[in-house]
Design a protein around this nucleic acid. Sequence first.
DNA 1: ATCAGCATGTAAGGCGTTACATGATTCA
DNA 2: TGAATCATGTAACGCCTTACATGCTGAT
Lengths: 183, 183
Amino acid sequence: MAKDRKIDMVILGLLSHNPLTGYDIKKQIDGGIRFFWKGSFGSIYPALASLEESGLIQKAENVKNESGRERIYYEITDAGREKLRIWLSDSKSVNDLKYEMLLKVFFGGATDNEMSIATIEEFEKEISRDLAVLQVYKNNLSHVLDQRDHLFFYLTVSFGVETYEGYLRWCQDAKKLLVERTD
Amino acid sequence: MAKDRKIDMVILGLLSHNPLTGYDIKKQIDGGIRFFWKGSFGSIYPALASLEESGLIQKAENVKNESGRERIYYEITDAGREKLRIWLSDSKSVNDLKYEMLLKVFFGGATDNEMSIATIEEFEKEISRDLAVLQVYKNNLSHVLDQRDHLFFYLTVSFGVETYEGYLRWCQDAKKLLVERTD
DNA sequence: ATCAGCATGTAAGGCGTTACATGATTCA
DNA sequence: TGAATCATGTAACGCCTTACATGCTGAT
């Protein structure tokens, strides 16, 4: 039995709502999920193949393909739902965070403060952009919280907003400190 | 020329202060850095070998080894310092964040709300513990900010405090919402 | 007609983890 | 004496990214 790679769980989770193609899955990962998880085609397609082999998903023949394009829909099986439930019922999670930005700040002593400030400002710019997106999501979702699916999306988006706002506050403070202490 | 793996930069950054052994480096990574970066022996020792081969670091023969133990000290070379400076002067950073916790929350629709609450509480517990550590660091460092090295450590620790406090606020809100909407 | 985007997939390689192997030393 | 920790390293393996390969379709 294949170990539960996280990408498998992402796919099972997405398919637990409705059948999707590999391409759809990629789009969804690049959409609202990208703030806390990533995945490339090079991991998605092999994962689909191995999940099918394990009987956790299967090709959905009955989904009609409107476009003239080749589209291979997959749907979750009962075994797949069970697997998903088991994973969800384990409250322990492994969060793997790597901030190259903080690494650069940490080693900032090896150069001028302006370098660190530039690094922070670059981060700040990116976060501001993404925060705007998150706030639009959050606002839209806040009106439809009674639909259970939206609730969970709302929670993850709120997480993003909360932490991104914290990032921006830190950027301000950090820049101030660095400017004060530049000779 | 070896590409700049991040672990290489961590090692160069740490060695830019003073000579260290592989074991020392591991300890430092597991110390104040662990909140935003990780690294195992299995990556550190090979990285040391390849950095030495590239001439970015070298064995420090002159460092006297007080203990009876085998300790191989490495020191950074001029080429290594240059490499570090080049990396630091590029203000673009890649931050790679993977929150399994949020993945579970996102797919919470597939089980009862209690599962999601348990997942959040587990996260909350871990974050609370780590936040306490960070606050001790921050408090200690705040008294010695005039020493330049401490300033950069202080900044990364402050980042941790800011985001961890945001995490905890979110945990409260999220749990409340989930309880309200449990049938 | 051409180009962007849709859509599936493979191949090579990098990076990193876990587990293992080995042995010395300090401390109780 | 035995356990914990210091200390270095290797091996196997897993996972993922990047780049490549292929071909179709819809819009301009």
